[in-house]
Design a protein around this nucleic acid. Structure first.
Lengths: 245, 245
DNA sequence: CGCGAGTTTGAAGGAAATCAATATCCGTGG
DNA sequence: CCACGGATATTGATTTCCTTCAAACTCGCG
């Protein structure tokens, strides 16, 4: 990340879901931030806590998760550069789930009051943040469809599509390839699958010539095929620029 | 529903998640409404449509759902009296899922502009509506945990707990009993289960003395047991009055 | 080189789906 | 008031997808 403006990631992300005026961009860039670098696999906020700041993921990869009584983990969403992780602290007191980094990341904490001031002076930005939380909810719903009604192959294909489109919207995709810094165990936690089965499904996806995946880098070889396998329709992401898909 | 104020259901619901001033209540009750009665199992809005009004469920039962390519349905949430069904039309253009009634219902349509005017004059109500959409998202997340990490028995137990608590918050529960106007097929669509399996799980729940269910009426016999079976913790509903649970 | 996290493979077991049939409920009209 | 018909619920038998357990393998790294 170039050093100039850490909120640039946020601007770029918000521009992917709406159009900003120059003044709005400037106001976003003026937001006071408290920066923090965090190692991989560290909790950012934990279920039950009352977090007093909103957290912007400037660079890195994070996830939202919840633990069941037996200690099983369900990952609820993945987050990328520019995502505001806990906008909900603006309106809800206690966290009903946890947030954690997946790789070493740069976080920027924003005072809720600064955000409120910003929204008062720029109502459109307030609407835009609300829009962003609604899109998050749409992503949850789409995952629910996968968990409830798609088999493992379709579920994994679907999220890979989702990640490709979201990452491309913030210009983190090059030549249909992106970094997926997630272990197979974590993929399993995200889709309610065992590590073993995730592994087998990934092999199928490779065998069917849809993707390659090694180290943390994923490349989509057959975008049409992957979309079809995951029944992926990007409408729910409500991006302004429709992708050439 | 007593005829006086159809928005009373909304006031009661919002009061379950926050405290309202007298003036705020009055402003809500002044909202212009277009009323409509709808038969059971009718779509209210369909995926892909652009809905131009916000829909308040005054009385009845509704659900949110999505269809996969093979025609499988995933129910995403259940809605009860007082719920605003598509607040998202305020900020998102196209519906990424559908809404339907489950029983004959009374709907009240509100013009987004009326809502916007209301929020301008009463910023707290705007915050409150935002809070409501955040709570909806929390409910989605909780269902995801169920779909991904709980077995059929736990999933069903969990939603029954959720419905009891939500219905009690709007005073629709008497003596641990409420109407659950949902077929076993619909429960299956909600939890990613087959009708057959839902049936077997319900028998287990009955056999374990946790509930009775006949016709559309459900009674919780053993609340502690049901909560335990569903690992239910009502925190995520963010209700103001904590229940005596 | 050797260690450990992550990945891969094999075999066996289980939760839930599917298929198929029967039973029950409930509203409607005779 | 009862008989009928369609929707819903129940039951049994079989199959499938995925889990669990256990072990071996690979790769990056100190």
């Amino acid at each position: 990340m170039d050093a100039i403006h850490y909120t640039a990631a946020l601007v770029r992300k918000l521009e992917s879901i709406a159009t900003l005026t120059a003044e709005e961009k400037a106001a976003l860039l003026r937001l006071p931030l408290r920066l923090k670098t965090v190692a991989a696999r560290q909790d950012i906020v934990r279920e039950g806590e009352t977090s007093s700041e909103c957290c912007l993921l400037v660079e890195g990869f994070a996830c939202r998760y919840s633990l069941t009584a037996e200690g099983k983990r369900q990952i609820l969403s993945f987050h990328i550069s520019g995502d505001i992780l806990d906008l909900q602290t603006l309106h809800l007191e206690t966290m009903d789930h946890s947030l954690a980094t997946l790789v070493p990341s740069i976080l920027a904490f924003i005072q809720p009051d600064d955000l409120r001031t910003l929204m008062l002076s720029h109502p459109n930005l307030g609407d835009l943040l609300w829009r962003d939380t609604l899109i998050d909810a749409a992503v949850f719903r789409q995952w629910m469809v996968g968990l409830g009604r798609r088999n493992a192959y379709g579920r994994i294909a679907h999220v890979l599509c989702e990640l490709l489109v979201r990452l491309r919207a913030v210009e983190l995709v090059e030549d249909h390839a992106f970094t997926l810094p997630v272990t197979q165990a974590e993929l399993g936690d995200a889709f309610g699958l065992s590590t073993v089965h995730v592994n087998r499904v990934l092999q199928d996806l490779r065998g069917d010539g849809l993707i390659t995946l090694h180290g943390g880098s994923l490349k989509v070889l057959n975008w049409q095929g992957l979309k079809k396998a995951g029944e992926f329709d990007p409408t729910y992401l409500h991006l302004v620029k429709k992708e050439a898909l």
